[in-house]
């Protein structure tokens, strides 16, 4: 049980990082970004490129992958999403489904469909107070906490972070206050994609890399974002933790294969009972 909660925290950190970007994009760009999971996968595979193909150390590979994923996200926005932005959020949504499938299969084209890992060999887990944790999992947990704290400081203390929150809160008011909305959209993509890439790399470190890994993360990501009240980055963090814990604990009762369905069921229940999310926000 305590072991499951520990795994839940690790997985929750990963989901939270992805859900923060998703929720900010949903609020600032006003559409549900269905390619967010596949952006995670892109980040994970770019890190694989630097780590395995070029032989860089893991942290260098991770930083390079995060930067490149952010660049890719801005490029995709310029080419595909920006021209469609005038036509309304519904078209953007279906366009992002298209981007998701293209990204996933670009990955499959270059890296193949077989699962891959950053590092071969089995790590001996540490045993701390009766709990088993692999060193790499400890790293993931520490990095996730640092990144979440970093995002919190950024949103809370920096001018840009405040502007981003203002835009998420009320787009028109932000625009008349002199916030350059188009520039902020670019920075929203940079932040969202960088966090997604970091989450994807952590997921790859924890388990393995598969082209479909991003698509499979989509439901937990959305469930976390909606649970936290779409548009609320702090809610997304809490939502990510709740979803991850629920998924891990569900294995006590249900077949492990149904883990992804748990987030879906939670989400539907929430939509029925409290559509604005657990933590306020406006639906």
């Amino acid at each position: 049980m305590a072991q499951l909660i520990l795994y839940g925290l690790i997985y929750g950190g990963i989901i939270s990082l992805g859900a923060i970007g998703l929720t900010l994009i949903a609020r600032i760009l006003r559409f549900s970004h269905f390619a967010h999971g596949d952006m995670m996968a892109l980040g994970a595979y770019l890190a694989l490129l630097f780590r395995v193909t070029f032989g860089f150390p893991m942290w260098v590979s991770a930083v390079a992958a995060v930067v490149l994923t952010a660049v890719a996200a801005v490029a995709i926005d310029r080419v595909f999403y920006k021209p469609l932005r005038r036509t309304g959020p519904t078209i953007l949504l279906i366009a992002s489904v298209g981007v998701a499938l293209v990204l996933r299969h670009v990955i499959q084209f270059f890296w193949g469909a077989a699962p891959q890992v950053y590092q071969r060999g089995v790590e001996r887990p540490w045993i701390i107070m009766g709990l088993r944790i692999r060193p790499v999992q400890a790293w993931i947990l520490i990095m996730a906490v640092l990144l979440v704290a970093g995002v919190w400081l950024f949103l809370q203390k920096t001018k840009m972070g405040k502007a981003m929150r203002a835009m998420a809160d009320n787009m028109d008011l932000a625009a008349v206050s002199g916030i350059d909305t188009e520039r902020m959209i670019v920075w929203t993509w940079v932040l969202g994609a960088a966090l997604a890439a970091a989450a994807g790399i952590m997921l790859g470190l924890d388990t393995q890399l598969r082209p479909a890994m991003g698509w499979l993360m989509l439901l937990p990501l959305f469930a976390a974002a909606i649970l936290g009240g779409l548009g609320n980055p702090y809610g997304a963090i809490a939502g990510g933790m709740i979803i991850a814990l629920a998924q891990e604990l569900s294995t006590l009762v249900f077949n492990t294969a149904y883990k992804p369905a748990v987030s879906f069921v939670l989400m539907v229940l929430l939509l029925l009972l409290r559509p604005q999310g657990l933590f306020g926000g406006r639906a």
């Binding site: 949504l93 909606i226 879906f264 559509p275």
Partner: peptide, 21 residues
């Protein structure tokens, strides 16, 4: 029933969810 009273995106997410489930 749970999604059609809400924003359009929720239906989209719910339908993906049901298909995957």
């Amino acid at each position: 029933i749970p999604t059609l009273r809400l924003r359009g995106d929720y239906l989209a997410i719910a339908t993906i969810g049901i298909a995957e489930t």
